Amino acid sequence: MLDELLGRASLRDRIDELEDENERLRKRYEAESDRRAEATTARQDAEERINRLEDRIAQLEGELERVDETESGPSVRHRDQLRGARLEAVFDRLTSFRTGPEGALTVGVDDDGITEPVRTELEPVLGERLALVDDDGPCLCCVDDAGLLAVTLEPPVVPDLDATWRDRFALEREWFLPTGRHAVALVRTDLFALGVYEGDERVDYRGFESDVKGTHSKGGFSQARFERIRDGQIDDHLERCAEALAAYEPGGEATDTPLYLVGQRGIVDALAAEAGLEPTATAAVDATGDPGPALEDAVHSFWTTELRVL
Rank of each mutant, 00 (worst) to 15 (best):
D34T: 08
G100Q: 10
R49G: 03
T215I: 13
L5G: 07
V67M: 07
G113R: 01
L191Q: 03
S210I: 11
T189A: 15
V158Q: 03
P124D: 08
E278I: 06
H237C: 01
Q59S: 14
D144E: 14
T257W: 09
A131R: 15
V299M: 14
K27S: 12
D256W: 05
R83V: 05
A270N: 02
T305F: 00
T305K: 03
T164N: 10
D3R: 12
T115Y: 05
P156L: 09
E65G: 14
R265S: 02
L191M: 13
G147S: 13
A294H: 00
D162A: 15
D34Y: 07
V143Y: 03
F208V: 01
K27Q: 10
D200Q: 14
R35G: 07
T41D: 15
F226A: 01
F169P: 04
L5M: 15
C142L: 15
A246H: 01
D269F: 05
E249T: 08
I234C: 01
S217R: 10
D190C: 07
F97V: 15
P101R: 14
E48A: 13
D297P: 00
W303Q: 15
D162E: 08
E253H: 10
R129E: 12
E4A: 05
G263N: 00
L25M: 13
D236S: 15
L148W: 08
A42P: 00
V90P: 06
D297Q: 06
R43M: 15
D13L: 11
V158S: 03
V212K: 13
W303H: 05
R35T: 04
C142M: 13
P101K: 12
Q233L: 09
R36A: 04
S75W: 06
E61C: 05
L11V: 12
L87E: 06
P156V: 06
L53I: 04
L149W: 07
T305W: 00
L122V: 10
G103Q: 09
I267Y: 00
T288E: 06
F176V: 12
L261N: 02
E278Q: 13
L122H: 00
P74A: 09
T288K: 03
L245Q: 00
T152Y: 04
G276I: 04
A42Y: 02
E121K: 09
R8S: 06
G207Y: 08
V107N: 01
A146Q: 12
F208S: 01
E227G: 05
T189N: 02
E102I: 05
R308L: 14
D286V: 15
D136W: 04
D211K: 14
C142D: 13
V67Y: 10
P101Y: 14
R12Q: 11
K27I: 03
D144I: 13
C241D: 02
T99S: 13
V158G: 02
E69W: 11
R35M: 07
V299L: 13
E121H: 06
L132A: 08
E154G: 05
V90E: 15
R79V: 11
A193T: 02
T215K: 11
R166P: 00
D231F: 06
R56K: 08
Y29Q: 06
R83L: 10
Q264R: 04
D112A: 10
E54T: 03
E88M: 09
G147H: 12
A246M: 02
C142I: 09
T40P: 00
A46S: 10
